[in-house]
Design a binder for these strands. Structure first.
Length: 680
DNA sequence: GTGGCGTCC
DNA sequence: CAGAGGGACGCCACT
């Protein structure tokens, strides 16, 4: 098979693969790529092609990857739907009547910005049965026909959009809910979100934006935004797009959403646990995340500015010293130039310790740490400082919303493979904490006047989940007795009394505990804690001897993953592992490690999501003014009135602990302070 | 747009 | 024999 593949490369066939396999010169990893593609079902095609190659070179185009979902592919017939532009008062009133009398409709907003806090409505799109309607409310181009006043239109629509009995079906409804919230409309009666639905069904089969979903599930290529609005600098906002172009684009959105919703519903019905996950966890969570984002976080700009001044002067000093040692000026932020200076003959001529994926000498921290040269230390310090400066100190103030004076991140509910949220613009989930200088940034995340910050995080949640899932007696016992789990592991592995465990032993045990969660090998552990591979192997063996349940769990998980092609969390969320039976060992091993990790990472996500639902319900019920403002995987951060903090801290801690009933206690650490840093 | 690097859990 | 740690996002240099 592989030989054939090489022939294929050498003959330089003109083939269109769905990915850029042969864009570059055939390199070292060509074999790997061929393997990858054969795993994805190209083997048959390659075989056929190979037979033909023997005869004479040919040109052939491969159809894009056919997805598993195609067995149930619905054929979307756009012409079955009407597309109506609403411009006259009478038509609008008739639409209003239809909307107010229906049980549910599909709905989408066209806006002038992706920034959810500032976006304004440009048009509204509705679908009832097979009729789609586009209602433009803000057109801004030459010769634009007469238009509605947005205000009066929205006033008429408000009762419908806020109705709990008229159902709404959307793609990524959180965004539309934001834009409506900006003008005081509280979107209610949510029945479906196709983005979330697709994510629950299969998190990894496709991305969950409408264009990709349409291609994957309907085999229909949608009109893309860039097709009507252009791209890059010349991109128009939707209000500048001609109505003739806007109409089919807008209407297609609701038509596709409707068709997607139907097919996703029928698929999800085949998996009751996933349906429950969707209906009772993920879909209700949309509104909680909406609230979380709108609450935002107050940031002390002055503090960030002062830190920036300080760090910039430190950077200046380091740069001067570095140039002196190097004997020349160079860009301290360029790995390529650093490489030249450290490793080339003309430079320092140091011996590289590690290579990048491209085979060049690596200059990352791990590699640099092993080199002994003053310039290396300067480079590492400089890196740390520029990171803090550019990613946080400079970037955060720019993103403060000038109306609310707060930072509003975007949480993404349909991105990660495992069920975690992700966060961007700005990313709240990678704010520094490890070093003092880094953690100082958290001191700029503050509470408003009269308020405090409360941070509550699950202690060792993934290890507890491992204890729960594996049912390992020793591990469960350690947690049940509230013993420090790393010390307990150290006592077991090093065969000492718990009271005799040294700091060094605990450190190693901690690395073992975490390493195992990620499926780390003896090699990796050895590197991590700087012992020989043999020694690391002994530790791991020792661990499994003492926690046989964990070993059993891992073996069973791997076997299950191989036989059924997916692993599950405690709520039945599935993570499919398409490469679990790959012939390419590297790909398969990666899938196996994922199989080990996903049940723990994913279950942890399940639990904190449950907690978020419960806590927001409590906030609404008590109407106590508590604001949930951040989620960082195993931590929730709140802002609240400073007077009631003690009581609320206990409530929140309890709700988080009780979010799931495991065979070990879920311990939550709660801290309070004027800033996020103090609250830790 | 990609690769390298670094931040978090 | 190589490669041997799960999941994210953002910044910079470089092409």
């Amino acid at each position: 098979m592989l030989n054939l593949s090489y022939q294929l490369v050498e003959l330089k066939f003109d083939v269109d693969l769905p990915f850029n396999v042969f864009d570059d010169e055939p390199g070292e990893n060509t074999e790997e790529l061929i393997e990858l593609y054969t795993e994805y079902g190209f083997s048959m095609w390659l075989k056929q092609l190979a037979d033909q190659i023997k005869e004479k070179p040919i040109t052939k185009t491969i159809e894009p990857l056919v997805s598993e979902s195609q067995d149930q592919k619905s054929t979307l017939l756009l012409q079955e739907f009407t597309q109506t532009l609403i411009l006259k008062q009478a038509d609008f009133e008739s639409l209003l009547k239809q909307l107010s009398e229906c049980t549910s409709f599909v709905f989408d907003l066209e806006t002038n910005s992706l920034d959810y806090m500032n976006a304004e409505i440009v048009g509204l799109v509705f679908l009832l049965d097979k009729q789609s309607y586009y209602l433009p409310v803000a057109r801004d181009y030459l010769d634009a026909p007469e238009q509605w006043s947005r205000q009066s239109v929205m006033k008429s629509l408000k009762p419908i959009l806020e109705s709990k009995v008229i159902g709404k079906i959307c793609q990524n409804l959180k965004y539309d809910a934001h834009v409506l919230a900006n003008i005081g409309i509280d979107l209610s009666g949510i029945v479906d979100d196709t983005m979330i639905k697709s994510y629950c069904l299969n998190s990894v089969a496709t991305r969950h934006n409408m264009d990709d979903l349409s291609e994957y599930y309907l085999g229909h290529k949608t009109i893309h935004y860039a097709d009507v609005a252009g791209s890059g600098k010349k991109q128009l906002t939707f209000n500048q797009v001609n109505i003739e172009e806007a109409l089919p684009y807008a209407c297609e959105d609701v038509i596709v959403t409707s068709e997607l919703n139907k097919i996703l519903e029928s698929k999800l019905q085949q998996y009751p646990k996933l349906m429950t996950l969707y209906r009772t966890l993920e879909l209700p969570l949309v509104n909680i995340i909406l609230k979380l984002e709108r609450n935002g976080v107050l940031v002390a700009e002055v503090s960030l500015f002062n830190q920036q001044v300080q760090i910039k002067s430190e950077m200046q000093e380091i740069q001067t010293q570095a140039f002196e040692i190097a004997g020349d000026e160079f860009n301290l932020e360029s790995p390529k130039q650093i490489q030249q200076i450290l490793f080339s003959e003309e430079g320092l001529g140091l011996k590289p310790k590690k290579k990048t994926t491209k085979g060049q000498p690596s200059t990352n921290e791990e590699a640099l740490k092993q080199l002994d040269h003053p310039l290396v230390d300067l480079i590492m310090s400089y890196r740390t400082l520029t990171k803090l400066n550019s990613t946080y100190l400079e970037a955060l103030p720019k993103q403060i919303n000038r109306q609310t004076g707060r930072l509003h991140t975007s949480y993404h509910q349909a991105v990660t493979a495992t069920g975690r949220l992700s966060s961007s613009k700005p990313n709240f989930q990678n704010i520094p904490i490890r070093t003092d200088q880094g953690a100082k940034i958290r001191s700029a995340f503050v509470s408003d006047k009269g308020n405090v910050i409360l941070a509550a995080d699950y202690s060792q949640i993934e290890l507890r989940i491992m204890a729960h899932i594996s049912k390992d007696k020793n591990l469960i016992e350690a947690f049940a007795n509230n013993i420090d789990v790393h010390s307990a592991t150290a006592a077991q592995v090093f065969n000492t009394e718990l009271s005799e465990v040294s700091k060094e032993q605990r450190r190693k045990a901690k690395a073992i505990n975490f390493g195992l969660i990620y499926g780390m090998s003896a090699f990796g552990l050895a590197k991590q804690i700087d012992v020989s591979r043999t020694e690391a192997k002994q530790y791991i063996d020792g661990y499994f001897e003492n926690y046989p349940g964990v070993l059993k769990f891992m073996d069973e998980t791997k076997e299950k993953a191989k036989s059924q092609g997916f692993v599950e969390t405690i709520l039945g969320r599935r993570l499919y592992l398409p490469q679990i039976n790959a012939k390419n060992k590297m790909l398969q091993q990666h899938a196996l490690r994922t199989a080990i990790n996903a049940p723990m990472q994913g279950s942890s996500a399940d639990i904190i999501k449950q907690a978020m639902l419960g806590i927001q319900a409590w906030i609404n019920r008590e109407n106590n003014g508590v604001k949930m403002i951040m989620q960082v995987h195993d931590e929730l951060v709140f802002e609240m009135d400073a007077n009631k903090t003690k009581e609320y801290a206990e409530d929140i801690g309890l709700m988080m602990s009780n979010a799931a009933k495991l065979s070990v206690p879920l311990v939550v650490d709660v801290g309070i302070g004027d800033s996020w840093q103090e609250a830790h």
